[in-house]
Design a protein around this nucleic acid. Structure first.
Lengths: 164, 164
DNA sequence: GGCGAGCTGTTATCATATAACAATTATGAA
DNA sequence: TTCATAATTGTTATATGATAACAGCTCGCC
């Protein structure tokens, strides 16, 4: 669950390189724990996804990668890395944007709920039991077995609303 | 909100032609009320979307249309009709499937919540205040102004679960 | 070192969606 | 009715997102 502090951090100027470092360190640790390989490519893709708190398209990752490596990247390369990161719970996919964002709390498996600002494009990850419980209750009422939940809210974040 | 009766109706064999007729009649009425044109093309596209309770891709609509009219349909034709139907609240878009489904309750504007069975592909539209309220509460806690909500739950419907 | 599994490269293609402009059709005012 | 206009639809081209299939490479283990 995103704490008030980490929410605040997203909006105010912050040392983003620390977000990236923490995310990469956590990924390194979790992959080791799971016995899966956190290769240079996977690490670089995760780093690119974490370049901001805005969801990033696969082809944005691809463009950067291709520019860096001089033509050494094609879509499958990026999608495979992203698929790996999704499987390990290191990134989330935002269906309504066809984009990916770094997971803020990869240490426990979850599917986030996202508040996406249409103005500044930031995506704030939540994991509120109240939403989860409401969904579980609705599903149970018609005997539906939930396997995955996509909750993506768009609107205006506090800062953009204040600025408007 | 989807009542227990209409939920039941979805799963048991039912006279689906009545669903279609009702949907088309409601659309006719609502378009007249709004002063917008419910053209033959728009009507046909809505009818195709309503051919089942399963979300249908734009290109599925296109294929049928092209076959009927002998080459007289291209993607923009279908997307424009779908955009119109979305604007009028006559269909919903399921972001996680890139597909469209007829709205069960077009008489009041809403964004549905969907329970999508991964086995039979049926999508059940809900409009539960509990989910909506949980989202509103979460958003309010960080001063986020909600403009639209995407809630798409996948799993197994009661019938498919029972069959498994 | 050599083997096998897993990872990455490469080419081709599929799937979804939109831009731009032309042709047609409906509607209301004269 | 006739015409001008706006809305709708047709058409061609292209953008954008994702995957299939197979080849080649690299890492970790024996």
């Amino acid at each position: 669950m995103t704490s008030p502090d980490s929410i605040k951090e997203l909006h105010h100027p912050h040392d983003h390189s620390q977000c990236v470092t923490e995310a990469l360190d956590a990924a390194e640790y979790l992959c080791a724990r799971e016995g899966v390989r956190f290769t240079a490519l996977r690490k670089r893709v995760l780093e690119l996804v974490w370049q901001s708190h805005k969801p990033l398209g696969a082809y944005d990752v691809l463009d950067t990668l291709a520019r860096e490596d001089g033509r050494r990247a094609a879509p499958p390369t990026v999608y495979r890395a992203l698929d790996f990161l999704l499987e390990q719970g290191l990134v989330h996919r935002i269906a309504s944007l066809n984009a990916f964002i770094g997971c803020s709390h990869p240490e426990h498996r979850h599917q986030g709920q996202f508040l996406i600002c249409r103005n500044c494009r930031i995506a704030i990850e939540l994991d509120h039991p109240s939403i989860h419980n409401a969904i579980a209750g609705s599903a149970k009422s018609i005997d539906f077995e939930v396997e995955s939940e996509t909750v993506e809210i768009t609107g205006l974040c506090a800062q953009c609303k204040a600025a408007a």
